[in-house]
């Protein structure tokens, strides 16, 4: 007994080191698992508050860009409206699917990162503004990510530029769907996998979200096909998708709330049981 105590006292620095190190490893492993409320995230009032106040200042330097984005979006919407008035059959599915089952909330990004392997954003709306886990986040150009954690005033968004992210996507005008992942290399390109070899694809095709999940409605823009190749099994395509969204400059975003989500989840759970 005496020897054990002596041993502990002699090596107390090393033991402290081991304890702290294994605790940090535990935190890393825990942060790798998707869909768990993480112990530590930046959507708390300290870091959220700091990011919010710095964002208040840095926003002024980008006012011109924001205005330009807004004008572009207005232009697009106006064009859509004109087209809608002239030819009802030619409406884009974007407007169809966003009709009644979805509600949009606006929010501003107060922290953004794109140079890590697992990137997260922080937005300035939280559970007080009825933002919940697993809501989709988009801009006028395309998708941004999925809400992962919320505090009362801030929410943590898992960016599409995150090696854990997996989003259902399909090729526009076909029914082939696969999942959208990121290999961590270039912050303008994401990868679309599991598209069958039989699918008719070519460079420049548009990729949109598929309606297979309850997070995003069908038809939200993602990007265009930049390059494609067959994977190891030669049965599926590996497609590089160039994002429409410039992930380095996202600021004002929309959070999509699916009003039917609870119903869908209940149904899925009842099948599992």
């Amino acid at each position: 007994m005496q020897q054990i105590v002596n041993f502990l006292i002699r090596n107390k620095t090393f033991i402290t080191f081991l304890l702290l190190f294994s605790f940090s490893l535990f935190l890393i492993v825990q942060s790798h698992s998707y869909q768990k409320t993480k112990l530590l995230n930046s959507a708390n009032w300290v870091s959220g508050g700091i990011y919010n106040s710095t964002n208040n200042i840095s926003d002024y330097f980008h006012l011109k860009d924001y205005n330009k984005q807004l004008v572009e979006e207005n232009l697009r919407l106006r064009k859509l409206l004109l087209k809608e008035g002239l030819n009802v059959n030619d409406s884009i599915s974007y407007t169809d699917s966003l009709s009644s089952n979805y509600r949009l909330h606006q929010a501003a990004v107060i922290k953004n990162s794109y140079n890590l392997q697992r990137n997260y954003l922080v937005i300035n709306k939280g559970s007080n503004d009825s933002i919940r886990q697993d809501m989709g986040v988009i801009t006028s150009n395309g998708i941004v990510g999925i809400v992962e954690n919320t505090s009362s005033n801030y929410a943590n968004v898992q960016s599409v530029l995150n090696s854990l992210s997996e989003i259902n996507a399909s090729i526009k005008n076909t029914n082939n769907f696969g999942s959208l992942k990121w290999n961590g290399k270039d912050f303008n390109t994401v990868q679309l996998v599991d598209i069958l070899r039989a699918a008719p694809i070519k460079k420049g095709d548009t990729i949109i979200t598929g309606g297979m999940s309850s997070i995003f409605p069908k038809g939200i823009l993602i990007g265009t096909i930049k390059d494609f190749s067959l994977d190891v099994s030669e049965n599926y395509y590996l497609i590089d998708v160039e994002l429409f969204n410039d992930m380095t400059t996202v600021d004002h975003v929309y959070v999509i709330e699916n009003l039917d989500r609870n119903e869908i989840m209940n149904l899925e759970n009842s099948i599992d049981e």
Partner: peptide, 9 residues
Amino acid sequence: DIFCDSGGV
């Protein structure tokens, strides 16, 4: 780590 959302890296 808390600020960067990087777990315990």
